[in-house]
Design a binder for these strands. Sequence first.
DNA 1: CATGAATGAGCTTTCATTCAT
DNA 2: AATGAATGAAAGCTCATTCAT
Lengths: 198, 198, 198, 198
Amino acid sequence: MTRQRLPGAERRHQIADAALRILADRGATQLTALTLAREVGVADATLFRHFPSMDAIVDAAIGRFGEALESSLDRSEATPVTRLRAFFLHRFKLLRARPELLRLAFNDRLIDAASGAGSAEVRAIVNRSRSFVQACLLEGRATGEIRSDLPPRILFLVMSGVMRGAALSSIDGIEDPSTPEELWDCLWRLLAAAPLQR
Amino acid sequence: MTRQRLPGAERRHQIADAALRILADRGATQLTALTLAREVGVADATLFRHFPSMDAIVDAAIGRFGEALESSLDRSEATPVTRLRAFFLHRFKLLRARPELLRLAFNDRLIDAASGAGSAEVRAIVNRSRSFVQACLLEGRATGEIRSDLPPRILFLVMSGVMRGAALSSIDGIEDPSTPEELWDCLWRLLAAAPLQR
Amino acid sequence: MTRQRLPGAERRHQIADAALRILADRGATQLTALTLAREVGVADATLFRHFPSMDAIVDAAIGRFGEALESSLDRSEATPVTRLRAFFLHRFKLLRARPELLRLAFNDRLIDAASGAGSAEVRAIVNRSRSFVQACLLEGRATGEIRSDLPPRILFLVMSGVMRGAALSSIDGIEDPSTPEELWDCLWRLLAAAPLQR
Amino acid sequence: MTRQRLPGAERRHQIADAALRILADRGATQLTALTLAREVGVADATLFRHFPSMDAIVDAAIGRFGEALESSLDRSEATPVTRLRAFFLHRFKLLRARPELLRLAFNDRLIDAASGAGSAEVRAIVNRSRSFVQACLLEGRATGEIRSDLPPRILFLVMSGVMRGAALSSIDGIEDPSTPEELWDCLWRLLAAAPLQR
DNA sequence: CATGAATGAGCTTTCATTCAT
DNA sequence: AATGAATGAAAGCTCATTCAT
């Protein structure tokens, strides 16, 4: 049996990714068999040779979304703070490469397109990142690197707020001049245990 | 079926508000004439005696959304920091009273339901709050009350991140134990120019 | 809105006549309760206080149509030719006074608005004029006043063709310069047994 | 339900022609997506895979109507009278083959179904036949073949009256015994310059 | 594998008609 | 008598999906 990647599998990825793009750019109401087929460059009936239904396409899209977000969760880094930093920087790389993905983590468009089980899966995926960050924050607080005068819950919101800002600024065409590293420095000033020099 | 008669203006508000609720809870794909009419408790044709089209209903909903968000922008407070605090606390009151409204400020569901001009209006409304906050931050920084080691842009994201967290926690049924005042204290620790003594 | 109260019978005539006008000007697809009510200057619900249904309104309109067309059939004139001439001239008076009526005799708009029985009635009304004319033609032929080298059926078509031309020219805004009497002279040249000396 | 597949262009013609038939037989109020689909033998949604809207279907129908009427205008005949005769006889052939078409030239049902631009097009089509006939009449009058004691406008009405009679008699099931040639002879007696033997 | 054609279900909207005031 | 509000039925149209080629 040939182990080569079948054109079929490739097409499926292509379709799922196109669905993510349409969702991120135009929202769930605009994700139809027709718009999707057009985005991919095939006839609408062709979609259903690769997937049994639109729901299945959205499920596949959710899968791609999950894989991408998962790839930011690098547990191999030594300390909680380096883990957090690596996560943050990786997400920015993702943001440059596929801006649609992060936006879908911050609006509900993927959830709106999903049906029942799918939307729970989206929430689970997003929660995995949240848990990862919260674990880092808790550990960092235990080691004294991260400030303990604020509940980790709040610190998480600070971090996700900054990331959301970055993710959305790309929509509005607002070019953000700062590099990911500069942004991390800003963020770190907010999270670090000892106040940095002001 | 029993006929519930209501004066036109009242019915229109009722419909627009129901639309906001459906959008916040179930998303734009679920906002149909039928679901909306059911939520209001009338026949679907009745909607079109009060509005010429679904688009017009969404426009009215956007109007209600705008009024509500606007009501938080109290420019009468004396100092930038008290303005900011008043804004923050007012938004929390809004959150308790009509949780759907804040959620719609943070996901794209209202935008997805709107058509063309409408979605621009939603963005404009959200931007008005953003500008208000950013103006407060800039002024507070000028008066030395707000820290100047971080760009106001970042401080804005910190604040909106905390508010988004509060707005969304109400969805997941995660009851947040802290009072708005406690949350403001947390936020203030992040924004204040000098670390508070505690 | 100012409420105009009118005695029932008058209102009913007003409504039926307005229906005829809408039919003649815009066709059966445009005759709706709303457009009709607007033409009359009342609310749509008001129509149904005077008639049980739209069908009833169309029936009343057909009645008015029938009365008007009937009024041209003057059987008191002595000879077939004077009867014919009187008919022709009377129809032209009608055309000036209520141009919509004759047009409805030549297109199918009243029939399209009527339901079953109604459309048969319209046909019957039109046929009554036709029979009147054909009777005149037959008689006139018997008396030798009207040419006999052509079947009366054809002569009838000549006459109705001229009348239709007059009726429709009023739509297109084509002002016809000739007087009814001049037109009758033309027509008579076509119908007369012997060519007129002129 | 059995699926009848047809190439697109053919189906479009089929639909447009069915629309003409419904219009001629039952009028614009009866031309609905459902009745039309039934007449064609497909589901109503199928219509909209071939046309974007009912308006577009009516436009196509108008196109077919125009082509058919145009085919009668044979400018190659040598003299005005033979042109007129050829036109008359061709229209009768059309009448036998597709009786609905001529009826639509004499009632307003196609206009009523059309929207704005469409109805102007219908009038333009009908006017083209009128102009053709009027040109023949004018020329024939110049050559002395056609009587000049009556304005050509009237002679046109005579001709169109006879044709309308023929077109409508087919509705009422009134079988007209005369052949087209016999009818032309009648008509010619009315138009010719010198009175024929009576 | 791909696609043009076809369709049932569902959506927005219009319309005639009813009801409460 | 008149009207604003309400509604069921049907219209036009969209959409996911199936089928035949």
